[in-house]
């Protein structure tokens, strides 16, 4: 009777795992793949406007804040180092390191968004000011939205970290937002280089 009770399974049936990749990581892969397609569509519009249309970039009289955006790039890249530090810490069962890494990443992410909002308020043109404005706000705004989503994921991870949810054996809740955060950083490097520098 006891053996029978032990074999009894309560709750929904266990999901079939047909892939070598963990289902949570696979979900993040598919999400990132869809994001690459979304950014690809925006970059196609950007290159079309800039190359095929042959307009000056940026149009005469308009200046992009290259230096401020460069500092913002450094802030975002630093946040990738801190999230990497957070994950490496919890892999060694260092909870304080993980918490500090996550809090620093959150702080740097918020600073990035605030700096971008300030840049928008002072840049001197609006999305309705021609194709240039539309593409600039479209691409940087799309990226900013992704930073916001990443910050939400990291906020949940940080709350759980302070509640003692992670360990050296179980840290998916930090790893998956970390993968997403690095992806967001990679996209920013592409956006910054193509829009501000080249």
């Amino acid at each position: 009777m006891a053996a029978h009770a032990g074999a009894e399974h309560h709750g929904p049936p266990i999901a079939n795992q047909s892939s070598r990749v963990d289902s949570r990581v696979l979900g993040m892969f598919l999400f990132i793949a869809s994001e690459i397609m979304l950014f690809g569509a925006f970059f196609t519009a950007y290159f079309f406007v800039r190359v095929a249309n042959g307009i000056e970039w940026p149009p005469e009289g308009l200046h992009l804040p290259v230096f401020v955006a460069g500092v913002n790039t450094c802030i975002l890249v630093t946040s990738s180092f801190t999230v990497h530090w957070a994950l490496q810490s919890i892999k060694r069962d260092n909870r304080v390191g993980m918490q500090a890494g996550l809090v620093l990443t959150l702080a740097l992410g918020f600073v990035f968004l605030l700096t971008q909002a300030r840049e928008y308020s002072r840049v001197g043109f609006a999305p309705s000011d021609g194709a240039f404005g539309t593409i600039f706000y479209g691409l940087t705004g799309l990226h900013g939205a992704h930073v916001f989503v990443g910050l939400m994921l990291l906020t949940f991870a940080t709350i759980r970290a302070f509640r003692g949810h992670y360990s050296a054996a179980h840290h998916h809740g930090v790893e998956i937002p970390g993968i997403y955060w690095h992806f967001v950083d990679v996209m920013w490097i592409v956006v910054y280089t193509t829009i501000y520098i080249l």
């Binding site: 990497h84 930090v174 970390g178 993968i179 690095h182 990679v186």
Partner: peptide, 18 residues
């Protein structure tokens, strides 16, 4: 992007490339 460590290395390579 198969793991956080791989994604981090990919970010560094992307920075160098660009």
């Amino acid at each position: 992007f198969r793991s956080e460590a791989e994604a981090f290395r990919f970010l560094i390579r992307t920075i160098v490339y660009f």
